[in-house]
C-alpha cells in the first residue's frame, strides 16, 4: 500500500493571521494528505522539534508579518543543525524578490495571496514524496 504524505502545517512567528493556513491545511487534508496543524505563534525551535518527532515529509509555514526571511532562515538552520532533510515550503505576504531569496536559501516554494488551494495541492503531489519507512 502506498504511504500517505505526512505534512506539518504551521504558523511561525507572532502574527495571528490563520485564515490562509487553515484553509490550506484543510484543503491538503481533503486531498488525502496527512496533516498536522501546529496552531499559532510557534517558534522555529518548536516547529523543527515537532517536524522531527512527527516524522513528517515536509513542513509548510505561513507568515504574514514580513518576518519570513529571518524565520525561514532560522528553521532551515535548525533543521540542518539536527541533520534533518525535511523540505520546507510556505506562504504569506512575501514580495517576489524575497521569494527568490527564500528559494536560494533552500525553501522549496512560496505561495502568495491569490494562490488557489488546488495549485498548492498539485505542487505537493509533484514535489513531495513520502520518506521511506
Amino acid at each position: 500500500m502506498e504511504k500517505k504524505v505526512r505534512l506539518l502545517i504551521g504558523k511561525v512567528g507572532l502574527d495571528g493571521h490563520d485564515r490562509g493556513v487553515k484553509i490550506v491545511a484543510r484543503a491538503l487534508r481533503d486531498a488525502g494528505f496527512e496533516v498536522i496543524y501546529t496552531g499559532l505563534h510557534q517558534t522555529p525551535e518548536a516547529i523543527v522539534n515537532m517536524a522531527i518527532q512527527e516524522g513528517v515529509d515536509a513542513i509548510g509555514l505561513s507568515i504574514l508579518s514580513g518576518a519570513h526571511l529571518e524565520l525561514f532562515e532560522r528553521v532551515l538552520h535548525l533543521l540542518k543543525e539536527k541533520g534533518a532533510t525535511i523540505p520546507v515550503f510556505g506562504g504569506g505576504i512575501i514580495p517576489p524578490e524575497d521569494i527568490v531569496a527564500l528559494k536560494k536559501m533552500g525553501v522549496k516554494e512560496a505561495f502568495t495571496p491569490g494562490a488557489l488551494t488546488d495549485q498548492i495541492v498539485k505542487w505537493i503531489e509533484d514535489n513531495i514524496v513520502p520518506q521511506s519507512l
Binding site: 512567528g13 507572532l14 502574527d15 517558534t43 514580513g66 518576518a67 529571518e70
Partner: peptide, 11 residues
C-alpha cells in the same frame, strides 16, 4: 526578545 526575531518594525 528571541520571539521578536525578524518581526521588528516589519508590519
Amino acid at each position: 526578545h528571541p520571539s521578536s526575531l525578524g518581526e521588528v518594525g516589519k508590519c
